[in-house]
């Protein structure tokens, strides 16, 4: 397996250049984001790779993965549709939106479509409270996709259209 530093030399270089040379640990979060976009999740091997680049242990790196919700330690759908169901969005019908969307896709909340492409999850506030129902799409498993994309003022129909587009990609 080629290393992250070889595979994405420019990205890695740009990340490392942001921090003082003696503070490489600061790069752990962006590097994890990069490996996750490459692999779709953070594997044990990736933990070790990132840990070495940052001069910390695999355990310390795993702590970061475990603490922050945008990192995943298991592979699910290529696209994670993350619907905000927090208070403000819920006041604007987000819970209903989520359940109808899942129903339309035939999966439970948190489930993945059989083709492995789409996972639908409920998440906490995404700072788009005035544009509910809304969700973000976390694209995983390819660094060429946009990492995260917001989709606001959604209906189940518009969401399903988008999902179809994502499946075609």
């Amino acid at each position: 397996m080629t290393s992250l530093a070889e595979q994405y030399a420019d990205e890695v270089q740009a990340i490392l250049a942001k921090y003082p040379p003696e503070q490489k640990r600061s790069a752990v979060m962006p590097l994890l984001a990069l490996v996750q976009r490459r692999d779709g999740f953070v594997s044990k091997a990736a933990l070790q790779e990132v840990a070495q680049m940052c001069g910390i242990t695999s355990t310390e790196t795993a702590s970061i993965v475990g603490f922050y919700t945008l990192y995943h330690d298991e592979k699910k759908g290529t696209y994670r549709i993350q619907v905000c169901t927090d208070l403000c969005c819920a006041l604007r019908g987000a819970d209903e939106f989520l359940h109808k969307l899942c129903e339309a896709l035939g999966i439970p909340v948190g489930g993945t479509t059989p083709d492995g492409k789409i996972t639908v999850e409920a998440v906490m506030c995404l700072a788009a409270c005035d544009k509910a129902p809304m969700f973000q799409v976390q694209a995983l498993g390819s660094v060429h996709h946009d990492g995260l994309e917001y989709h606001e003022n959604q209906t189940v129909e518009s969401a399903l259209r988008l999902i179809e587009e994502l499946r075609q990609k």
Binding site: K18, S26, P30, I64, Y68, T69, L70, Y71, M124
Partner: peptide
């Protein structure tokens, strides 16, 4: 000026948790 992305943690809005996170630690 550099941007640094967190990864999903409300607590990082607390300024010292934010600094911890920026240093590559738990927020």
């Amino acid at each position: 000026i550099y941007t640094h992305l967190g990864a999903g943690a409300y607590i990082c809005g607390e300024e010292t948790a934010l600094l911890e996170s920026l240093e590559g630690k738990l927020g």
